[in-house]
Amino acid sequence: MLEARLEQSSVLKKVVDAIKDLVQDCNFDCNDSGIQLQAMDNSHVALVAMHLKTEGFALYRCDRNIALGINLVSLQKVLRAAQNEDVMTLKAEDSPDALSLVFENSENDRISEYDLKLMDIDQEHLGIPETEYGATVKMPSAEFQRICRDLSLLSESVAIEATKEGIKFSCTGDIGKGAVTLRQNPNVEKPELGTTIELQEPVALTFSLKYLVNFCKASGLSNTVTISLSNEVPLLIEYEMEHGYVRFYLAPKIGD
């Protein structure tokens, strides 16, 4: 059986908020390393991989591998009943029909108990190869979100170029064009506000802004985001949590 307790419900609430517009139904794979999820969007253009590691739980017990087939819209309805500061306990049997969720407030005078029906989801897992990326950019997640939103108002696609000059996001649309260039600017006192760029080789790729804007819904998970790019492979966008991560992969647009 599974029994997993989070000190703060906000952790799972934010994870579900981050991915629910990308995938609808997915398996939460529970095993002795924690709770993991891997799912593609309907069009198979983007992939999300999530890991909540056991260290992040106040209590974690999972005797054998359990796949919780969850509709994320339904899960979000139940999670609305949890306050951010509530302690959340997840429980499931070995072959569960339902996931039990218990929310307790810090004063210990309210206990909310919910059951979420589970579904059988036949989901294939993809092997994600270890990749030495040509360029890796770490920057404030809020700034990345702003750039994606601003450019998405002009165009469907963004060209991302990483050179020794910096990283340039540019787009062209019906009403005009726009570009934002970021230069390396580490912040010694507040590293989360700085921008660092590691460049092995110049990279130039084109991506759909619709997906990037969607990924930015994970900005609440972390003050910083890491963007990893290599020519002609999917881009990796990672939001790192204290004990886990949410990673998004996006296939590029490539000339015929």
Binding site: M40, S43, V45, L126, P234
Partner: peptide, 14 residues
Amino acid sequence: PTKQRTISSFFAPK
């Protein structure tokens, strides 16, 4: 003209 690729054309099923 560019064409949107799919993730499965890069990552193989396990």
